[in-house]
Amino acid sequence: MTREWSERDDELLEQLLTGDLAPDDPVATAAFAENPELRRQFDELQAVQGELDESAAADEEDERPREPAADLLRRNLHHVPATSSGSSPRRVWLGVAAAAVVLIGLSLAFGEWGSTPKSAEELYLNLSVGELHPSDEYDGGPFVWKLDVPLGGRIELSIYDPKREQRLAHATLEPTDTSWTPDSAQLADFLPKMIWELVVYDAEDTPESFTHEISWR
């Protein structure tokens, strides 16, 4: 008689598919004997892995001959500026400039905790980085922001879990973009509480990041 699927089966299946556990390992064989559904699911997902590998192999056949990376690096070494890493007064200045030019709002957010939902148009937070609210609610609509003055570079938007361990969504945007809407797959990944981060680049490609915590559901 087959027992019900358990969290342990999920753990075993994950280990089998990531190569942490060999299918002929006694732990695996015992689990397969105890739960034939585990064997069936492993076989099916292994077939999916096989399809991926076949697809990747078809792509590789199309590859052009490449220069070894070490040669490529040496040939282009003149592009590496002969200065060390770290903040320079110029970079600090540009960072301050970027902070000054970008004001961010999150639309389709609700105002304060538990308050009546507001429309997108009502909720241009229009705050400088030091004034961001600690939390707002998000209802799945577009993220909207406002730039006070034109930005020369680009914008990258990322959504993270509260501990910033997983990036749930990411988008690279043009400086003229003022909104971004997650697609359904990204929405499926969203958590009840998230961090969103906007990294803006000025014309000199200097990044400055702004983070904000949001909640939903």
Partner: peptide, 27 residues
């Protein structure tokens, strides 16, 4: 090619960080 396209279309349906991890692992 058709099989490869079908797998990539399916991967696009998965989307998000999961598709990114699968792509990095296999492709």
């Amino acid at each position: 090619d058709a099989n490869s396209d079908r797998v990539r279309r399916a991967l696009a349906r998965v989307g998000g960080v999961e598709a990114e991890i699968i792509s990095l692992r296999h492709y």
